[in-house]
Every structure is written in structure tokens, then in C-alpha cells.
Design a binder for these strands. Structure first.
Lengths: 78, 78, 78, 78
DNA sequence: CATGAAAAAGAAGCGC
DNA sequence: GCGCTTCTTTTTCATG
């Protein structure tokens, strides 16, 4: 509320985030393009997405399991 | 905007959802209680949660894989 | 640390939480269904959610007020 | 249907998308970091997000206007 | 347009 | 009690 903020610093943060957001959007576009190209070459987009999703889940699962192991080790003091 | 809505029906929907929300909150409380009790009996809550999370991931993974299989079968027309 | 934990008790806690989680998910599904039905009868789901959120906020404020009253009563011993 | 797909090409598409996804995630992390830094310097993150959202809306409106202008120019051939 | 998945925002619980 | 992370919810976006 009654905070004194640096207008300049605020401006910089906003600009930085907007720039990063824009980069992110660009990459999202590129991903869309790749899917479109794959579709054009006879691949089923939905299946591709599912494959990628499952691979991602596998990776996440590994990470979670390692974290669980760490928890166990911490709990057992070893 | 200019829709004519049934005040009575609206009331009923709101009530029903609020009741269900309340039930959901009750169950969430019960879950919290179980964790608290487990903690009181020497279990590490974080570890318990991780175990449950991994089991859930396993189940989700199975479902996703079945869906993927269906997609393949659909794509291949078999 | 290095506690001997009861495998059986662990199993029970896990099961109980998973069962409660499942119940919670069921209710969440029911809520979704009610929204879907309301939508089918011409209501705007987003607006319904807003209404419920506002009602909930007011209720929380009431709770806060009651808690404040309890605090005063406790301080006054009445 | 029943297409013979190139396993190699599939691999390439998957890899490319995963790489792009990873880049996107990296940028998302950077954005989070900027918000965290801003917070550390006394800014309210939620408010920052609101500001950015509002600016974005305005920008989209500008884009709409430009598209409309392009439409008119196309129709007029100028 | 309506459905379903991904991202963002918001809320809550947890530790210190 | 406060900050930080996790979970829930909301919103957005892409596809059919």
C-alpha cells in the first residue's frame, strides 16, 4: 500500500519478464510448427503427444523415486 | 446478460455444489487427521506422501499407456 | 531415526489415505457433473463459480468475526 | 492408416519437441527467478503479474486493430 | 464450439 | 509467525 517503490526498477522488471514471456511464446510456436510438420509427414499428432507425455512421466517417476530414497535414507540416518 | 434464468433452479445448483464442496472439505480434514496420527506413531509424513504419490503415478502411467495403445490401434485401423 | 516401523500399520495408513483420496476425487467428479448439468440448463459455469467464491468469502469473514467474538469472550471470561 | 512410418524420423520429431519443451521450461524458470528477485526487492509479485496481464491485454487489442487495418488494406488493395 | 490437456494463479500446509 | 514449497483451482490454448 504505502510502499515507496522505485519506478525505474519496476520498469526494468516488467520489461525483463515481458521479454522472457515473448521468448517463451516463440518457442511454443516452434513446437506447434514441428507438430504440424510431423502431421504433414503422416504422423498422428495426438499419438506423438501421448508418447512425449509418457516419456516425461517416466522421467518424473525416476526423480520422485530418487527423492523417496533420499527421504528413506534421511529417516534412517544413513 | 439478457438471459432469463430460474432463480429457484440457480438456488438449487448453488446449494448442491456448496454441500458437495463441504463434503470434500470434510474428507480433506480427515486425510489431514490420518497424517497427523501417523506422524504421532513415528511415521514421516513427507515419506508417506511420496509413497502415495508414486503409487498414484504408477496407476496414471498404466492408464496413459492403455490410452496410447488405443491411439495406436485407432491409427492403424485395427 | 532408525525406528522399527510396523509394516502392517504403514499399510493401513496408506490404504486409508488412498481410500479417502478416492472419495474426495469422486465428490470432485460429482461437482463437475453438477456444473455440467447447470451449463446444459443455460447457466454460465464461470459465473456460478464466482458466486460460490463470493459467498464463501463472506462466510469466512463471518467465521473471522465469530472467532474474534470468541477471543473477546475468552478474554472477558464470559 | 496402416502407414509405414519412419522410426528414425519419429525419433527426430520426438527429440526436437523434447528439446524445445526443455528450452521453454528453462525460460519459465528464469521468469520465476525474476519474480523472486523482484519480491526480494520489495515488489508484490501478484501485483506485478496483474500489471503484466493488463499490458498484455492492451497489446492484444493493438494487434487486433492492426489486423483489422490489414484487412481493410487488403480489401482496398493498398 | 466444445472438449480436454497444459500453464498460471492462488491457497494451503509445512518447516524454521 | 513468516517464508517457501506443494497442491488445488482457474484460465488458457489447441484440436477435432
Amino acid at each position: 500500500m504505502s510502499e515507496v517503490i522505485s519506478k525505474e526498477q519496476l520498469q526494468q522488471y516488467i520489461n525483463k519478464i515481458e521479454r522472457l514471456d515473448s521468448e517463451k511464446a516463440t518457442i511454443a510456436e516452434e513446437i506447434k510448427d514441428v507438430f504440424a510438420e510431423a502431421k504433414g509427414n503422416g504422423f498422428d499428432v495426438q499419438t506423438l503427444k501421448q508418447v512425449i507425455r509418457i516419456k516425461k512421466m517416466d522421467r518424473n517417476k525416476l526423480v520422485e523415486q530418487e527423492e523417496l530414497l533420499d527421504l528413506y535414507r534421511g529417516a534412517l540416518g544413513i
